[in-house]
Write a protein that binds this DNA or RNA. Sequence first.
DNA 1: AACCGCAACAACCGCAAAGGG
DNA 2: TCCCTTTGCGGTTGTTGCGGT
Length: 316
Amino acid sequence: MGCRSCDKPKMNYRKGLWSPEEDQRLRDYILKHGLGCWSAVPAKAGLQRNGKSCRLRWINYLRPGLKRGMFSQEEEDVVINLQAKLGNKWSQIAMHLPGRTDNEVKNYWNSYLKKRVMQLGSNSSSNPASKNASPELLTSMSATTELIMTSGGGGGGGGSTATSTHDHDANISSSGAISAAEPFVDQHEHQHHHQQQAKNYVFADWMPTAAATAAPGPESYSMSAHWPASTASSGNVTPSHGAFVGDQMSGSSYAALQHPHQQEHHHHHHHQHGSTAAVGAHAGAGGMVAGGGYFDLLNMGDIYGGFTTTNDDLLF
DNA sequence: AACCGCAACAACCGCAAAGGG
DNA sequence: TCCCTTTGCGGTTGTTGCGGT
């Protein structure tokens, strides 16, 4: 682990929200050099951030394969059930939700699900089916959830003391537990407290739609030279990767990326954290790209996150 | 119009584990 | 084995904007 060569100069690190320029620097750096010593990234990328901040930014926001927008009913079920089972092991829970980060899951739980579960728990105390989830919540309990529940292993309720040993980046579980294909592209309209904008699946908001569909030119630099071995061995690492190279950021889509909720609020009465602009710009990345593109991009999540999943693990 | 409360989410902080020297 | 650095994780705080008054 120790990255001795990463002697960083003492400096006053910037804090707070990331600017588009910072994001671009970080993104460009990672694209060119791959994931490595985070503590060295700021200096090498020309960022006045600490490595920790860079890592977090990458994982939670810039990394390809991330979904944005509201949680689907299925995802909600997964969170509720796994939280009941594992406790606040957000990274482990996130592993079962492709494209979701632990931070996102955690936020969703703290801001919404926790209250809901508590309410339901107090209202329907006589629900033997689940100590946390109400019948309402369970009605849509899918085979997906059951799969997770049965494959999770290890019992125990909340407050598990199990030490997490997984790679934080690997939000796509090795079990490929969630069959994401169809539910991920619909405009799930389940009754959500805040009636958020229907979720959208953005495989890296900064990725232009063209990148999801168009084959890049052969001039692309060699990804395999920089990315984890799993990348090179993955048959799904397709030419589309090349499209990531360089400045892929369109102004509009990036603006949407930076602060989704700062955009288009005037179009909706309710909070809208899924960026409509992003949907417009990138809907194809997750939705329109049925089949191949979708797969490829998802695998990009593998690549950038250092996943070790195989093609077989991705059940989409 | 101004203020306040709330919700959502991005980001920070502190701690512990992992791992190299 | 110890020390130090890096990384990963979970709790918490900060920021922003909306809705209500």
